[in-house]
Design a protein around this nucleic acid. Structure first.
Lengths: 162, 162
DNA sequence: ATTGAAAGAGTCTCAGT
DNA sequence: ACTGAGACTCTTTCAAT
């Protein structure tokens, strides 16, 4: 486990209302111009620029990501996988092995029934079956897995701040 | 369940190598300029512009999202919730109720043990406890829930295309 | 710290191929 | 369908406050 970044944590306390408003607005519309955002928040575009640069330097704003409809590209099978480990000390090696499977897009170490929780995106059920049966079961340290295939995503959004 | 968008699905078949390369490159670096991307892919910036506009019109590229380090902002408790429903026909009303809880950021209807799978982001364990105990248990149709608190996120990434 | 304006860089459009 | 150049818009810098 990485230690907490105290520089960041101290910096976040110094964020004022304007900083949080900028984050809030840009989480809803990342492509708004500095001038327009400045108008909405009653400051100049230059001020928006300075604040965003500060937030980027602090690592709070980490840039922009392209939003792609993976379903339309043919990647329409999403599943969640609960992983039981033989020993929890095997977490690191299993995590590394899972990272080498490109279809595994997310992995969390969790409390509760499962030791780890993974998310997988595949082109079709055949590919999912292959990864689950042929790739996952070969990994040393995995006792067994439980798979939950998503039939529908109701929603997916950012948490609301302020 | 929404029907599949056949216009999109037909359109995706017409995507050529260049379209997929643009998506691939911009998934890794959403902020690259059209001119620079054009140089890498041996076409003009104008061509990149036309292709991206096409991908946006088709709904395949849905814009850009701001990447924010929610941990630094104090939202550092992530948990996954498996939901058992009394009757699966109650899916829609429960989904609506969960959508009204701002801390619930994602909801999927799944096969397997649970009827639904939710993800929640909170400021601290007290807030998580409040949402789980006071808000979730009040929702009509939820039989019980199982919570998996994330102790660490190993990785989170896009699926690799082409 | 914020502003407003100028310089620099990127997006968008279009006539020509 | 792609190119290159011009028009337009946005980002970035900076002197003044």
């Amino acid at each position: 486990m990485e230690p907490k970044n105290n520089a960041k944590l101290n910096a976040v306390k110094s964020l004022d209302k304007l900083d949080l408003q900028i984050i809030q607005h840009m989480m809803l519309d990342a492509e708004i111009s500095y001038a327009d955002l400045g108008k909405q928040l009653f400051v100049s575009g230059g001020t928006i620029h300075v604040r965003i640069k500060k937030l980027e330097d602090l690592g709070i704003v980490q840039g922009k990501r392209l939003a792609v409809d993976m379903k339309v590209l043919g990647y329409d099978v999403i599943a969640f996988i609960g992983v039981y480990l033989e020993k929890s000390s095997m977490y690191d090696s299993v995590a590394l092995a899972l990272k080498n499977i490109p279809q595994i897009v997310r992995l969390n170490y969790t409390t509760g029934n499962y030791s780890m929780f993974a998310e997988i995106v595949c082109k079709d059920i055949q590919q999912l079956r292959y990864v689950l049966h042929d790739e996952l079961q070969k990994i040393k340290g995995i006792e067994r897995t439980e798979t939950f295939i998503s039939l529908e995503e109701s929603f997916s959004r950012n948490v609301r701040i302020v």
